[in-house]
Design a protein around this nucleic acid. Structure first.
Ligand SMILES: [Mn+2]
Ligand SMILES: [Mn+2]
Ligand SMILES: [Zn+2]
Ligand SMILES: [Zn+2]
Lengths: 142, 142
DNA sequence: TGACAAATGCAACCGTGTTGCAATATCATA
DNA sequence: TATGATATTGCAACACGGTTGCATTTGTCA
């Protein structure tokens, strides 16, 4: 993990971007954290808990920046709120708790969605991706 | 279609609700329209095109009301915006155009998603539903 | 150390959706 | 048909997630 975070930092520097205090902290949050996707508001809170008060504009801009760099990815869990997680380069889906909005990643072994698409009438859309979200109640809320 | 709209109106009256000018127009929009889900803003525009200026609060409340009555259903197409369509009582999914936000319904024949769930680690969530959204470019935008 | 550009903070704004409350319209009943 | 109870509507103000312009600060490299 320490290697990965250093690699990410090196890549950023190589591309002419700066390693600010805030950016390094955000990288730490994403790399050290669990695999749960977090929202801009949650990230802001986590930074505050780390004694770093960051303006929300900066948080939004940094999330967009790290997404553009391919370090994190946007997760749409089905409520109208963007979340982000470390880019794991592996296709998977998400579960959302309808009561407390907790989100977890879920992986379907041998997901055949892509193959099933061939037999589907997609209304002349050119498909570039899909999102499968499950809804329900988490362990604490059920 | 004319029968269905009359049946819906009768049900509403039987349950003590009123058939206002606005409510009847909204029912007409949903029953006569294509099967494409529409947002509150789009509905407001369609009513305006029918020479009926409606306050947005009324639109939102009416959409929630008709959902609660089971006449229409909420559709989450993957952008952070609620859409609604006539309740067809049939399980299906949706495609979203990433450029113009057009939405269409798609049906996967013999959707096996529910069965695949048994072999999936759902993180102790109790699942009550799912949403599968495809993304891409519509016929006009591709 | 200094200059230049990247990053930040601030304030104001946007779109979607919600709430409290007063005014209005519907409809059963007289 | 007139009336009253209450369902519905409009208005204004608000909540929330997210964005934008611009001035200030900070990181980096020569
Ligand atoms: Mn994930
Ligand atoms: Mn549909
Ligand atoms: Zn929960
Ligand atoms: Zn399109």
């Amino acid at each position: 993990m320490i290697q990965q975070i250093l690699a990410a930092q090196a890549t950023l520097k190589d591309n002419g971007f700066r390693l600010t205090k805030i950016r390094k902290l955000i990288l730490e949050v994403f790399f050290s954290n669990t695999t749960v996707p977090i929202s801009a508001t949650e990230l802001k809170s986590q930074l505050f808990a780390l004694d770093t008060k960051v303006n929300k504009t900066t948080v939004y801009r940094e999330l967009e920046f790290l997404s553009a760099q391919g370090i994190i990815v946007e997760v749409n869990a089905g409520d109208g709120k963007k979340r982000y997680e470390l880019n794991c380069y592996c296709h998977h889906h998400h579960v959302l708790c309808l009561r407390c909005s907790a989100v977890e990643c879920v992986t379907i072994d041998n997901c055949t969605l892509e193959e099933q698409l061939n037999s589907v009438d997609l209304k002349n859309f050119k498909i570039t991706g899909h999102a499968l979200n499950f809804f329900g109640l988490c362990a604490q809320c059920r």
